[in-house]
Write a protein that binds this DNA or RNA. Sequence first.
DNA 1: ATGGTGGGAAACCCA
Length: 262
Amino acid sequence: MPFTLATWNINSVRLRAPLVCKLLSEEAPDVLCLQECKSPVDKIPTEDFAALGYTHMIARGQKGYNGVAILSKRPIEDVGDQDFAALGHARHVAGRLEDGTVIHNFYVPAGGDVPDREVNVKFGQKLDYLTQMRDWFHAERPARSILVGDLNIAPREDDVWSHKQLLKVVSHTPVEVEHLNDAMQAGGWADVTRADIPEGQLYSWWSYRARDWDAADKGRRLDHVWATQDIAGAAHSSRILRPARGWDKPSDHAPVFATFDL
DNA sequence: ATGGTGGGAAACCCA
């Protein structure tokens, strides 16, 4: 059975519940992973999603910040969360579908403005988070697993509007890219989106601060879909729903999709 | 070099 999954940094699941419903109605992924829900779990409008067939949800939340959720048409078992770098933030949750496929949903720390851990604690926390991700996946050796989320790093030159101009900008610095690639390698993860779409500029985020985000098109690919090698070959039809960035009162991120024939 | 726009909380944090 083909299985379609999407990941979307929603930037407040309560404010943008209508946009989540629009996406679920129009695109009907089997599973939707959300980040930056900015809501305690018990205040997520689950009834709105259940009415569209998404009767299963696993989530982690806190008041005002962070928060991750997995909405599913199929039963999904909560298999826990990790608190890398001991931040006490709701940045990860994992679930297992009935066919055994495990889905990890991550919201990696953004890392602040200055890419130097000596002067910016948040940048150090971001690197530590990625290092602990690496160590955990090295120990776990995940199989039949999918990892999605807002990883807050655009690793490739063609994942940003200007490689040269972003080399010292948090999200595209060489040290962050190295940490991300180490975590990826440790878990045996493959970049599904780039395996599917190997050529050309690809973005999933455009700043709110641009006068005209679409015309300026100064985007970054911060949102990712990875899979372990054993199932990466089953993935196809990856896409980024750019029009969602232009919806009314949008998130600054667009949803990223992939389909797996499992 | 700077400030531009958002969300949530509570009178400032975070992205």
